[in-house]
Nucleic acid binder design. Structure first.
Lengths: 199, 199
DNA sequence: GTCTATACGCCGATAGAC
DNA sequence: GTCTATCGGCGTATAGAC
């Protein structure tokens, strides 16, 4: 039984290694520029054939990454909403998370922010229809109702606020801004919040 | 001689048709999802082979598009700078152009804003090092010097300002915002300008 | 569960007739 | 300058031994 458990764990670990390798390569070179051979190599497997014991095909690797990343983001958003009442605090929590991810897991952030997912995962939900992002719109609507946020189209509020946040992080990820994201956090938060806050 | 002229013109026209077809397809499906067969068909050519009489290979089509679009953008920026003195007016001119292009030439705007150019044109200059965008940084620096714009890192000013502008246009281009870009111009300009304007 | 070997298809690219 | 025909290669995917 110990042995069985070990085998199962080993399998799960190999899957994770494949996912991790794929995430890294997709983030750096793009989906179409990375072959299964590349992924196998980066995952420490001699041959790409072994990958097919873990995933049906190349697209399913990307699809699994998509699910993992957006699920985990969704859980984080739930957590942030539970622990904060005001819309401003909740948005601040999400911004903190984004900046932290940019420094600690840039590949994840590339996947979330920069990759054109619909180019290689056309059947998946657009990012904005994802559970987590629907909740962000709800946070904005609540903020408008409570008077914290200016009374304009929530989609525009979202566009302005995350325009500033995401574009800043984009420049960090591409190296155009040379410091860690954390160095820009406080003033970028202020800039973004002031755009949408009721004066 | 008339005949010769006609042939030359025809050749140039065919080239333009190929470029136009490629732009459309790259913008909608992405570079890697469009084959030369697709481009030939969309350009009204029976076979992809004929394309090689106009372009060395697939990448050179994209490269030519890149050059055309950024050159033309650069010329527009020059024009805008010549016709306006204040940084705010110059930035407003660029924003007007962006919104106009989004409505009138969405494929061009997709190419400028959304496509990950380095994924299929790795040897071309990153967008931010492009002549036009270097000039935008100069406009920002001048605005800081003259006291129109807040005195923070010009790259951050750029990130905030165009974060709002580009993210809004991105949502228009993807259909998440359902009106024409022009409907959002005045309030989006105000939001973006207020972020960077000295109070 | 990973290996070797191999099939298969698509697409970029070339040759050459017209 | 566009056509038909065809090559070559890469990358996905499968078959089957171990």
């Amino acid at each position: 039984m110990d042995q069985e458990k070990e085998i199962i764990q080993t399998k799960a670990e190999t899957q994770d290694e494949i996912l991790l390798a794929a995430l890294k390569l997709f983030a750096r070179k793009g989906y179409f520029n990375t072959s299964l051979t590349d992924i196998a190599e980066a995952a420490g497997i001699k041959n790409s054939s072994a990958i097919y014991h873990h995933f049906k095909n190349k697209k399913m690797i990307a699809s699994q990454l998509y699910a993992n990343i957006f699920d985990s983001f969704n859980i984080s958003v739930d957590d942030i909403r539970r622990r904060n009442q005001k819309s401003s605090e909740q948005l601040r929590g999400i911004v903190d998370l984004f900046f932290k991810l940019t420094d600690d897991a840039p590949d994840v952030m590339q996947f979330l922010l920069i990759l054109k997912l619909n180019e290689f995962l056309p059947e998946e939900k657009p990012v904005l229809e994802t559970a987590a992002f629907v909740k962000i719109i709800k946070i904005i609507q609540a903020g408008i109702k409570s008077g914290e946020i200016r009374n304009i189209d929530p989609l525009l509020v979202n566009a302005y606020f995350f325009g500033i946040i995401n574009n800043t992080l984009r420049l960090v990820l591409t190296g155009a801004l040379d410091k860690k994201a954390d160095a820009y956090l406080s003033q970028t938060w202020l800039a973004a919040w002031n755009v949408i806050a009721k004066k």
